[in-house]
């Protein structure tokens, strides 16, 4: 049962990651790209959670904590320095 659920969850996460990657490639603005990168990071963290559930260990929990703690730094930095260069 847990294996079937892990396959469903893995396929779902992969679909979400592919769609976030498409948005990352298409843009149109850098803010959309940072948003897609945030979603991609969360999907990676969810994948680590799936691995911990299937194999019954807690080895990746450090990555989850650090990932959820430092994820905002990149997007805040980009959002701080983004400027409008259209229409000037």
């Amino acid at each position: 049962m847990i294996i079937v659920a892990a396959w469903i969850a893995g396929v779902a996460l992969a679909l979400g990651a592919v769609m976030a990657l498409i948005r990352l490639a298409r843009g149109p603005s850098i803010l959309d790209r940072t948003l897609a990168l945030d979603v991609l990071l969360i999907i990676i963290l969810c994948g680590l959670c799936v691995d911990m559930v299937v194999n019954r260990h807690l080895n990746h929990i450090v990555f989850i904590v650090v990932g959820s703690l430092v994820a905002f730094i990149g997007s805040v930095t980009i959002a701080r320095y983004v400027t409008d260069r259209r229409g000037q």
Binding site: M19, R23, V50
Partner: peptide, 20 residues
Amino acid sequence: VVISMVSGALLSVAAGIGLL
């Protein structure tokens, strides 16, 4: 465990669809 794992993954799909 199974239900929460699958629904958590489905939320990622929802986010991907929303992003697109």
